[in-house]
Design a binder for these strands. Structure first.
Length: 499
RNA sequence: GCCCCCAUCGUCUAGUGGACUAGGAUGUCAGCCUUUCAAGCUGAAGACAGGGGUUCGAAGCCCCUUGGGGGCACCA
């Protein structure tokens, strides 16, 4: 049906960091473009000078790249339809706004922001119609000229048709109709000469030859306005597809712009960089984001980019809003962590461990104990930042067991625990072969000698060695940590119980 | 208040009139494994919002109700 090459854009506003919702929009655009052999354009909509946030641009760029969403045209890569910052295209918007005025399709409005706000307030009080009452639309040429001569500042508003309706087609939702009487004479050009979203968006999409607009559902109600703009300009509108909004994890309301504290106290981050920092893998987040509003085949949950690309179909995107399934992301990230090699995991872990323990990355990279423990760590992580809590004992110089009772498992006496620790220390001090297997063999023999159960010996040892209730498996931990430290810690703990 | 969109297990979803006693995943619970925690394996509970139509036949089409969401800026 579409003969021209597909060109889509992701058009964030640099007013904040890249949100997972925005990332999902970018992802679907990217998927659509790449699966249709088209172009993915990144355009920065920086026309809001009040909310401009200087760090957000870099964050958006970094986050998109981290997710692997590369753009064909846009910031830092250029392209034939540039510039890709709206702040650098101001004359274009002014020119076309003036053109609309000259054509009688738009008009200067001299009302101040305060006047318009007052208007709105009155209407709200009376529960009547909403918005600007169009008083400047009916000004005579003389009145207009007089105000202009008096130096009154003005905005340019679109003169939308007062009657009739507009019906447009959405690639996900089908035909949608709005009555023109519900529409506003929206501001196109602000009094400072900068364009609003509506104008800039339509002008840019046209001159950048955008063929499809995939964006959030929250834009659906501004389509009729844009449609009339295309009409006024005499331009061919693109194909619209409105993606379902992502709701808060509890399903209530559009996903918040700042981190979400759930009822149980757990925190759900909303920025892509937060997930990056928290040790999520980009492939996992990519895969996960694909699954909000779209499904590969209804069966397969774990799939790579190529697979997604081969199957992606915009018409199969869900129309209904959906909650952000945070727990599923946890699980999925664990799956992706388990898929990488031990060595890859070790490297990925270094910065996180460095930060957690204040040890230089180079030192950690050379740490043989860490290397030995990676395989046992591997299947215990949902995210990279889970690692420090599991292996803190490697970097604690001295272990201080706060409560000696922690060394005593249930169904075990204090004396039994002390005996077990002492015996294990003595045995390990003289053990010839120092491997997980030999350690295990010797310890099991010891258990039989002492006539105790595994848990009665391993439990105290775990606490004595790691000062943690949860740790990687004992035998490899012992092997990794080294004889001297192990024996010392066991004896120290035994002494604690003797006291 | 007005307009628009939407409606399948708690959650993400499969389903495009008959293969639906509604499938997968996550989460939950139970069992196995087991030195803790994970991972893994096995099993269980768990949904077509309600009511009318249309049809031989409806989760899927139409209408109404209800519920949810979005929008109504010189923000995007």
């Amino acid at each position: 049906m579409t003969t021209s090459p597909v060109r889509v854009r992701f058009a964030p506003s640099p007013t904040g960091f890249l949100h997972v919702g925005g990332a999902r929009t970018a992802l679907f655009n990217w998927l659509f473009a790449r699966s249709r052999d088209g172009q993915f354009i990144l355009r920065i909509e920086d026309t809001d000078r009040k909310r401009y946030h200087p760090q957000s641009l870099q964050d958006i760029l970094d986050s998109l790249r981290w997710l692997g969403l590369d753009w064909d045209e846009g910031p830092e890569v250029g392209g034939p339809y540039g510039p890709y910052f709206q702040s650098q295209r101001l004359p274009l918007y002014q020119e076309w706004a003036d053109w609309l005025v000259a054509q009688g399709k738009a008009y200067h409005c001299f009302c101040t922001a305060a006047e318009v706000e007052a208007m709105r307030q009155t209407q709200r009080d009376q529960q009547g119609a909403q918005g600007y009452d169009r008083r400047c639309r009916w000004l005579t040429p003389e009145e207009r000229a007089a105000r202009q001569a008096a130096g009154h500042s003005s905005v340019i508003r679109l003169a939308v048709p007062l009657q009739g309706a507009v019906t447009f087609h959405d690639a996900i939702r089908g035909d949608i109709t709005f009555n023109n009487k519900e529409l506003q004479d929206a501001v196109l050009l602000k009094s400072d000469g900068w364009p609003t979203y509506h104008l800039a968006n339509v002008v840019d999409d046209h001159f950048m030859a955008i063929t499809h607009i995939l964006r959030g559902d929250e834009w659906l109600s501004s389509v009729p306005l844009h449609w009339h703009l295309y009409q006024a300009f005499g331009w061919q509108p693109p194909v619209w597809a409105h993606l379902p909004v992502i709701l808060n994890p509890n399903g209530q309301g559009k996903m918040k712009k700042r981190e979400i504290v759930q009822a149980d106290g757990t925190i759900v981050p909303v920025y892509v960089h937060s997930y990056r920092q928290a040790g999520y893998l980009p492939d996992a987040l990519f895969n996960f984001l694909c699954g909000i509003g779209w499904a590969l085949d209804g069966e397969t949950e774990i799939y790579d980019r190529e697979t997604a690309l081969a199957a992606f179909d915009i018409a199969k995107v869900q129309a209904s809003p959906g909650a952000f399934p945070a727990e599923k992301l946890e699980w999925m990230n664990g799956v992706y962590i388990r898929q990488i090699t031990h060595e890859a995991l070790r490297h990925a872990l270094l910065p996180h461990l460095s930060q957690a323990f204040g040890v230089p990355v180079e030192t950690l990279a050379a740490d043989e104990r860490l290397r030995l423990l990676i395989p046992d760590l591997h299947e215990r992580l949902k995210k990279l930042t889970d690692a420090p809590a599991l292996i803190g004992f490697l970097f604690a110089g001295d272990i201080a067991i706060a409560n000696p009772e922690d060394l005593i498992p249930r169904n075990t006496t204090r004396e039994q625990a002390r005996q077990a620790l002492t015996a294990a220390a003595g045995m390990l001090a003289g053990l010839e072969s120092w491997t997980p297997d030999s350690i295990e063999g010797a310890l099991r023999a010891l258990i039989a000698d002492l006539n105790l159960k595994p848990g009665q010996v391993f439990g105290p040892m775990r606490v004595a060695i790691t000062n943690q209730a949860v740790s990687p498996p004992l035998f490899s931990t012992i092997a990794a940590v080294g004889r001297e430290t192990i024996v010392a810690r066991l004896r120290q703990a035994a002494a604690l119980l003797a006291a």
